[in-house]
Nucleic acid binder design. Structure first.
Lengths: 353, 353
DNA sequence: ATCCCGGATCGAATCGATTCGATCGAATCG
DNA sequence: CGATTCGATCGAATCGATTCGATCCGGGAT
């Protein structure tokens, strides 16, 4: 890589060879300021001759105080973060507003003990994606660095621009639909409650200690309608986890079985449905299933899921825009998005006894 | 953001306040070199008092010549790149070797006219992911920057470490299975042939101009067994695209219909199967379908796909390792992976007339 | 002929750290 | 007791650009 005989050319070298000062050469590459056509050509020729690839991004970043990199902090493993289509939609939105504008997106799978040290990552701003309360410490570090911070569905944090979703209210409306249909025994399948991602029945103690904001908000919404609803927490937002949760809730004597399940993501809902099918429980005749997200399940389940459709791409765009606003020195306004209940074919009145 | 009355603290400021030189303060944060316990404490206290978040990553990068960022260049839109589970598996592998080691992954959705200027992105190395020949120019830019380059399944490029897959040979083995089963009329559903992602029948002209390496290699492998095989190119690796391709190939008079379809990804295969189901064509009795990748389809299709399983996570790990080798000053060895034919339930002898 | 203006260029300061070699005092060794 | 060594600290150079203010020069206005 590093060849002593042939060091990497620098702006200074190019300038020397072109017979101009470094400042003038800089102007040629940055485009700022007037440069005579002849000079410009001479500099570019010198650059070509030396194999100069343009100003060093790192040096430029230091001087300009901008790296062009936006961090996206998630609490999942790298691949898992994008395994749920809802996050892909969000990424699409971010891409439109940031990647297309020349910003690079730096994915930072954060964990309490992971190798990533958020204080040492070169970036201009950070987007916190589905982050739990555990991240609070890291938020402080980032704030000390004076980085603009945008959080997507996080507990309110001072100085962090919030991009929110009506998680509680939307779930409440979904639950109300179920109640109006006549359901009384409803169970929840929640997203992971904390970084441990424990797959286990909900208990007051576990809910007390939960750190995942979105999961708790959605639980809150469901309880507004069904105060006593129990359920289980899944180990992630996947069909497989939904299936496991479904088995746990449905493989019981029919009298104990819920007549409806409120799942906190469409993938979980799809897994629940699969569990029901396997146990010979008809959906929606014997079991209603409510999802969340409104992603295209694209054949993962033959049903049209009754679900709460959230504007995920919009959410991503809003986050991207907020970042750009902040970088432009303006104060971004927090945005709240609303989900819409989409009546599918997986909710119906409970079976009559 | 920038508060004139309260400028962001620097190492120099901390050092001054602690009554030591900047060099000593630097040692405290970098851990290199011996520092007396009392001094260390004093510096850390000063840092805390000033709200210093640690050495500025940009300045550190300039001085050290390392940013800790690895670019991952794809030719897809941000979200699309990760919509195919095969890439997620790859990401998992990359994550293990890079993210877990403290490197950040910078996703760069490259397109000829996109905002991303690869010459201006701060990074230590780049991984080229499923890149077509169109990227050649950008590769030059990156090489001028003397960045270590690792390409996953790309045409051989001088100075670029290749992580390869037996695309042609694997497809050939899959095709041979079909021939042994008795198939003679076989059609292909390929990945996009170029950046245009045109959805259209394969023609010699289009294949001539194709720039997508993997797609062409797999076509080559199929043609080794079925020299006259025609087919269509899809607009992406998705179930929806596979469905469209399937309709195009299958919605014809039975006599013209292929008895087997070689799809270049599992998602495409799943789409083909869906099209077949919809047209009342039984799989595998009336139509055999071969996939590629061996990803968990998790209920996207009820069949166990007959497919070529590629070690995707391993591929990612190898690429990550290659990057680390290169950054350590060693010369990474190119790696070639082999796919394995997995007999599923979607390939059978052709219908007898 | 004088004055002024603006385009082109340059010098020097700066961004915020890291690191090499030098210095200095105290402890160890023969 | 002098020489040596080691640990702790510091000064200065460096990484590679950007940018502000100053300078120089030719041409149009007066």
């Amino acid at each position: 890589m590093s060849d002593p005989a042939n060091p990497r050319p620098t702006l200074a070298g190019v300038a020397a060879r072109a017979g101009v000062s470094a400042s003038t050469a800089s102007l040629v590459f940055s485009g700022a300021g007037p440069v005579a056509e002849a000079t410009r050509t001479r500099v570019l020729e010198a650059a070509a001759a030396l194999g100069y690839a343009g100003p060093d991004p790192t040096a430029r970043s230091l001087r300009r105080g901008r790296t062009g990199v936006i961090g996206v902090v998630t609490e999942d493993r790298l691949g898992d973060a994008f395994r749920d289509p809802i996050n892909l939609a969000l990424l699409d939105g971010l891409g439109e507003e940031l990647a297309d504008e020349g910003f690079g997106l730096l994915v930072l799978p954060w964990a309490p003990d992971s190798g990533v040290d958020l204080s040492a990552v070169p970036m201009d701003a950070a987007i916190l994606l589905g982050c739990s309360a555990d991240l609070a410490h890291s938020v402080e570090v980032l704030q000390r660095r004076r980085l603009p911070l945008v959080a997507i569905e996080a507990p309110p944090l001072a100085g962090v621009v919030a991009i929110d979703l009506d998680n509680a209210d939307a779930t409440r409306r979904g639950a109300e639909l179920l109640r109006e249909l006549g359901h009384r025994r409803v169970a929840l399948v929640t997203l992971p409650l904390d970084l441990g991602r424990t797959r286990a029945p909900l208990t007051p103690a576990r809910e007390q200690e939960a750190t995942a904001f979105t999961a708790m908000e959605r639980i809150r919404g469901a309880r507004a309608v069904f105060p006593d609803a129990g359920g289980v927490s899944a180990g992630g937002s996947t069909v497989a986890e939904g299936y496991l949760a479904g088995r746990a809730l449905l493989d019981v004597p029919p009298a104990d079985r819920p007549t409806a399940i409120v799942a906190q993501s469409d993938l979980l809902a799809a897994g629940v449905i699969r569990a029901a099918e396997e146990l010979g429980i008809a959906v929606p005749a014997e079991l209603s299933v409510l999802g969340f997200d409104g992603v295209r399940l694209d054949g993962i389940t033959p049903y049209a899921l009754t679900t709460l459709v959230q504007p995920a791409v919009e959410k991503g765009r809003a986050a991207g825009r907020a970042v750009r606003e902040a970088l432009a020195g303006r104060t971004p306004v927090p945005v709240s998005f609303a989900s819409e209940l989409r009546a599918g074919t997986t909710a119906a009145p409970p079976p009559t006894f």
